[in-house]
């Protein structure tokens, strides 16, 4: 069914600039799964950094541009829970585009959500003999509900785990604090620098204590923050976006 759909890839601006491999992996992965994907070249940023800093009202231009760029696609897929959540919940409403904007909230998906809920791919076959620790971004987890949150009394689920657990040799590592924030938080990373660093160090320590070899995640922003701390302290953990892992194992 999805073969005939027009799917747009939406990349967070910092992924476009700093992590082109994550974009490439996402597009290749979707194509391997039979999707027709294009990347609208005019796309910029969703406006989240400004809105979270208290300037949502200044993102009208950005939000309008986003709608114009993506409104004609059947699906919009992004390898980022955070940016998708922003588009759904914190874009200012744009006059003249109310219908398109409302429709967009039902057709924009974070990558693992799209794979599990729309494409309905089962556990993926392949081999990935590594100890993987997964960092669920808070916006993906508690915002988009991509995995169960430890505060709620709900049955455990995790969309990323669903995709990864079938891989031969992959060991899914359970952390001591399974869903504590890493401390990135956008501008928080610089306005509350001391706390941000401490939170990142604590999160890394949990992965290391549990002998994680590859720290994977669905949001590069969290990974960029933790990787920055890890690399400064030379502690040898590898970082991968889940799109990179899945694209690597699917031939």
């Amino acid at each position: 069914m999805h073969q005939n759909k027009n799917i747009a890839l939406f990349l967070p601006c910092y992924v476009d600039q700093f992590y082109p491999n994550v974009g490439i992996a996402t597009i290749q992965l979707l194509e391997k799964l039979g999707c027709k994907v294009s990347f609208p070249m005019d796309q910029t940023c969703c406006g989240q950094p400004m809105a979270n800093a208290g300037y949502e009202r200044d993102t009208v231009g950005t939000a309008k541009h986003f709608i114009k760029t993506f409104k004609d696609f059947d699906y919009i897929v992004a390898p980022s829970g955070s940016c998708v959540l922003h588009v759904k919940e914190h874009s200012p409403s744009i006059q003249g585009f109310e219908t398109e904007q409302a429709a967009m909230h039902h057709k924009i998906f974070e990558l693992t959500e799209f794979l599990v809920d729309v494409l309905r791919v089962g556990p993926i076959k392949g081999s990935y003999p590594h100890k993987v620790g997964f960092h669920s971004s808070c916006h993906g987890q508690r915002g988009l509900r991509l995995s169960a949150s430890s505060e709620l009394n709900e049955p455990p689920f995790n969309k990323a785990k669903q995709l990864l657990e079938g891989l031969e040799g992959l060991e899914w590592v359970e952390l001591d604090r399974k869903d504590e924030c890493c401390g990135f938080g956008g501008t928080f990373a610089v306005t509350e620098e001391a706390l941000s660093i401490q939170m990142g160090k604590d999160r890394l320590a949990d992965h290391q204590k549990n002998n994680v070899e590859i720290l994977a995640g669905g949001d590069m922003s969290c990974l960029m923050h933790m990787q920055g701390i890890s690399s400064r302290n030379n502690n040898g953990v590898k970082f991968k976006h889940i799109a990179e892992i899945l694209n690597e194992v699917i031939r």
């Binding site: 990349l11 992924v15 476009d16 600039q17 700093f18 992590y19 082109p20 491999n21 974009g23 490439i24 597009i27 990347f39 070249m41 620098e193 660093i197 990142g200 960029m224 923050h225 990787q227 920055g228 701390i229 690399s231 400064r232």
Partner: peptide, 16 residues
């Protein structure tokens, strides 16, 4: 207290 990401040769857009 954090390193910046390594700078890639090209952006995703360049690659695309």
């Amino acid at each position: 207290e954090r390193d910046l990401p390594e700078v890639p040769k090209e952006s995703f857009k360049d690659w695309y």
